[in-house]
C-alpha cells in the first residue's frame, strides 16, 4: 500500500500532465483550422494546373519525344520513395504509419529485384527510417522552426527531385504521405510523381480537350511539368500538416481523457487509504481506552 504522500504526489503530477495535454489539444485544434484553410486556398491552383496537365498530357503521351518527366525514362529499375512526415511527434500513429508503409514498400520492391532509394521530408520520418534504412536515404529536408509552409519550399524540393532525376539517380518516383480525410481519419496514400502519366493511347484527344496551345505542346509541357511536380508536393505537404494537427488533436484528446480516468482511480485509492488510516487510529484509541 503506497503511503498517502506518494499518492498525493502522483495525483498532482497526473493533473499537471492533463493540463499540458489539454492545452496541446487546444493549440493543435487552432493550428488545424489554419492548416485546413491553407490547404483549401491552394486547391484552385492545383485544380486548374491539373486540368491543363490533363489536356496537354493526353495529346503528348503518345509522342515518342515526350518529356521524360511525363512518360518516364523508359526504365523502372530504381525507385525513389518520397516520404512525407511531420517534424514533431505526440500525434499517435501518424508518423509511424508512414515509416511502416515505407518499410513494407521497400521490402516489396526489393523482392521484385528493384533498387530502392528514399528521400524523407520531415524530421520524424527521417529519424525513424534512419535506424535501419540509412543506406537508402539519399536526401532529407525538414521544416523545423518554420511557421508557415510556402510554395517556394515545395518548389525547392521539386527542383532537387528533378535534379536527381536528370542525374539518373532514380527512374520512378512515388510520393508517400498521409491524406487528410477528416479529423479522425488520415490514410497513407501513394501518388506517382515521375512519370506523371503512363502513356495511354486511347484517352487521346477527347473532344472537350481541344485546346489551342501556345507556344506549342512540348515547350509548354517542359515548363508545366516541374511546376506540376511542385504543386503536387505542396499539396501533399499541406495535407500532411493538416493531418498531423488533426492526429495530434485526437491523440491529445484521448491522453487528456486517460489522465482523467487515472486521476479518478488514484483519488479512489487515496480516499480509501485515508479512510483506512482514520479507522485504524480510531480503533487504536478505542482499544486503548478499553484497556484502561
Amino acid at each position: 500500500m503506497p503511503s498517502l504522500k506518494t499518492l498525493r504526489n502522483r495525483i498532482n503530477s497526473v493533473k499537471s500532465t492533463q493540463k499540458i495535454t489539454s492545452a496541446m489539444k487546444m493549440v493543435a485544434a487552432a493550428k488545424l483550422r489554419r492548416a485546413q484553410a491553407q490547404a483549401e486556398a491552394s486547391r484552385p491552383y492545383a485544380k486548374r494546373m491539373g486540368d491543363m496537365m490533363g489536356a496537354l498530357a493526353a495529346a503528348e503521351a503518345a509522342n515518342p519525344n515526350a518529356p521524360a518527366l511525363l512518360v518516364g525514362n523508359g526504365r523502372d529499375k530504381t525507385h525513389l520513395l518520397l516520404a512525407i512526415t511531420a517534424d514533431r511527434g505526440l500525434a499517435g500513429a501518424f508518423n509511424g504509419n508512414i515509416s511502416k508503409h515505407v518499410r513494407l514498400q521497400v521490402q516489396a520492391l526489393e523482392a521484385q529485384g528493384k533498387t530502392v532509394k528514399i528521400f524523407t521530408l520531415g524530421r520524424k520520418g527521417n529519424d525513424s527510417l534512419r535506424r535501419d534504412l540509412e543506406a537508402k536515404i539519399i536526401g532529407t529536408k525538414n521544416f523545423v522552426g518554420k511557421k508557415t509552409l510556402e510554395f517556394s519550399d515545395a518548389e525547392a524540393i521539386a527542383q532537387t527531385i528533378i535534379g536527381l532525376f536528370r542525374d539518373e539517380a532514380f527512374d520512378v518516383c512515388t510520393l508517400v504521405f498521409n491524406r487528410f480525410h477528416s479529423v479522425m481519419t488520415q490514410t497513407v496514400t501513394e501518388t506517382p510523381l515521375i512519370p506523371a502519366a503512363a502513356p495511354t493511347a486511347n484517352d487521346n484527344t477527347a473532344p472537350e480537350q481541344n485546346y489551342e496551345v501556345e507556344p506549342d505542346d512540348g515547350t509548354l509541357l517542359e515548363r508545366l511539368l516541374p511546376r506540376n511536380l511542385a504543386v503536387q508536393i505542396y499539396a501533399a505537404l499541406l495535407e500532411n500538416s493538416a493531418g498531423f494537427y488533426a492526429s495530434q488533436m485526437t491523440a491529445m484528446d484521448s491522453a487528456t481523457r486517460n489522465a482523467g480516468d487515472m486521476i479518478k482511480k488514484l483519488s479512489l485509492t487515496y480516499n480509501r487509504a485515508r479512510q483506512a488510516n482514520i479507522t485504524k487510529e480510531l480503533i487504536e484509541i478505542i482499544s486503548g481506552a478499553e484497556a484502561v
Binding site: 491552394s42 484552385p44 510556402e150 510554395f151 511542385a230 505542396y234
Partner: peptide
C-alpha cells in the same frame, strides 16, 4: 477573370 497563385485565389 481569375488570378490564382499556388497559395491562394
Amino acid at each position: 477573370l481569375e488570378i490564382i497563385s499556388p497559395e491562394k485565389l
